[in-house]
Amino acid sequence: MRDARTNIRDALYEEPGPITKRYTAVGTAISLAALAVLAAAVVRQFYINGQLAPRYWTIFFRWTTWRFLGQGLLGTLRAAAMAGVVTFILGFILMTGRICNYRILRLIATAIIDFVRGVPTLLFIYFFFLVLPQLGIRLDAFWKVTLPVGISACGVVAEVLRSGVNAVPIGQKEAAYSLGMRETGIFLKVVFPQAIRYVIPALISELVIVVKDTTFAYVVNFPDLMQNAKVLISNYDAMLSVYLVVAVIYILINFLLNRLSDTIAKQRPRTLAAAELKGPTA
């Protein structure tokens, strides 16, 4: 009997006997060989097409390359941070609409949430990029990224916040009422501060979606990581290597954000997972 079976992956299998152990060893060897062949095939494909040539990769040993990519990354992070703020504010407003006592406000908030959750970010970006100028509204490229990205994420944020508010035990509210606090005070001082702690992991996961969506910044010519990568490519004529490195940077950022979310969720077991509230993935 093994202890600490926290993982169903391991619970599926019994303690292996000698024969199973041998099978597993053979399977491991075969799969290692298969993965090695796969990796070799990828490297070969790079090699025979000349993509391993030093000129494509030595640019990453240059300080200027990283400074330029770093500037782009800063643009991405700036846009993502602002979009995060926008989406939190909008999400908070929608959430209060969703839980308030007036039926008509609840309906409006629900309709808006369903709308923004059902429309792709790119469509919002095109709205800000192509439609608003026709109406005579001129915005900075920064806002043409952050506003649509923020708007498209706010529906999920509203639902996440609402699930947090619902998770606060009713006794908290009752206790606050019995102290003579008012409705607004109870919500802002008792319920919401607890709700936000429940949903911090889910909010961080949502930030991943925001970071991913900011890649569309090149549509409006905002100098983010993707846009700077394009400039780098035209300077060095190194399409594949630059795009791959940039993709890895994005993957790392989002991976770390997800890790952070998981770590916080594990430290505070009473947090809520966002699994059922997951919004757009791209």
Binding site: K212, M239, Y243, N254
Partner: peptide
């Protein structure tokens, strides 16, 4: 990899960079 890569980044790699790998 695929839950963290932005869609635009993946598509651009497939469309514009993969032809360099034939």
């Amino acid at each position: 990899i695929f839950r963290n890569i932005p869609g635009a980044s993946l598509l651009i790699i497939l469309v514009y960079a993969f032809p360099y790998l034939n």
